[in-house]
Nucleic acid binder design. Structure first.
Lengths: 154, 154
DNA sequence: CACAATTAAATTGTGCACAATTTAATTTAT
DNA sequence: ATAAATTAAATTGTGCACAATTTAATTGTG
């Protein structure tokens, strides 16, 4: 109000970036809530689902390799992978060639779960309810944003 | 590859929406990592910072009111607010008119902290490093997305 | 008025996320 | 070959996030 479009003050700028952070934070939580009922039949949490997606794409990875794909460290992954092992979806075995590494591979039921998971993204896409190009563009913007943030935070 | 732009199969669509979810998830975590060093001097976590932003905008709110602004429930807020109280940034008092409610208000040092926080969004905006209209557009898209997700998940 | 239903916080329990440290194996540079 | 440095997981501890339950106060209804 009373300020032209081309004279963004420092305050405007600050406020805007705050809103972006909060919008991101809120959208992520809303997404997680939307995923919950879709993942419930598989008895997976969203982070567990991400790990399964990674393994469905490339099986038999080390904890480190899974971590680099999802930007998570062993402090997060070790207990998560133990839960997946307890659920008989994966097995964790020390690499005999390099005993520091633990290789994670799918069990038969881990591979079988993929079938049950196939319907999920479609339902979620319906929930998003936007044209494909919009989804692509938004995804790309978020990926760029992440790259910038990573560059800042290391 | 070998598929025209206008023939998105069900699989494409599924894959795309998966990527959007993951991009959102990854961008949020990258944001949190970028915030950490900026919030460290204030000794606040990002969720604590969000609560302080809410209170700086409108002081003396009930736990419920804070929760509706941030989409968080008492299970999350009660321990967080107790930590802010321990840090002497807020005080929690039962409402004498309705003893079920707890009103949260800033202390003098809670109000004073705002000065130290003022520099943060600017640094973050620099980290984002994009033109204002792009930030506005992205924020709007995320807000819309959240609204759709909330509509689905209740 | 009494009592059922509702509401606001708090509590309990599970599961990330991440910093910091520890343990053990491997690599590198003497 | 051996000591130092590096690497991969695991562990420890803090702080969300959220479902489910509990407690206590208030409101609504017969």
């Amino acid at each position: 109000m009373g300020r032209s479009e081309n004279s963004n003050t420092a305050e405007d700028l600050l406020q805007l970036s705050q809103q972006l952070c909060f919008a991101l934070y809120a959208a992520t939580h809303a997404f997680n809530r939307a995923y919950k009922p879709l993942l419930a039949p598989l008895e997976l949490t969203y982070p567990q689902y991400l790990v399964m997606l990674v393994l469905w794409e490339a099986d038999d990875l080390t904890v480190k390799e899974i971590g680099s794909r999802l930007q998570l460290d062993s402090g997060t992954l070790t207990p998560l992978l133990k839960r997946l092992e307890t659920a008989r979806l994966v097995e964790r075995v020390r690499d005999s060639a390099d005993e520091r590494q633990v290789r994670v591979h799918l069990t038969e039921s881990g591979r079988a779960l993929r079938k049950k998971a196939e319907g999920i993204p479609k339902k979620l896409a319906q929930a998003i309810g936007r044209p494909i190009p919009d989804i692509v563009a938004l995804r790309q913007q978020l990926t760029d944003l992440r790259a910038r943030m990573d560059a800042v935070a290391g």
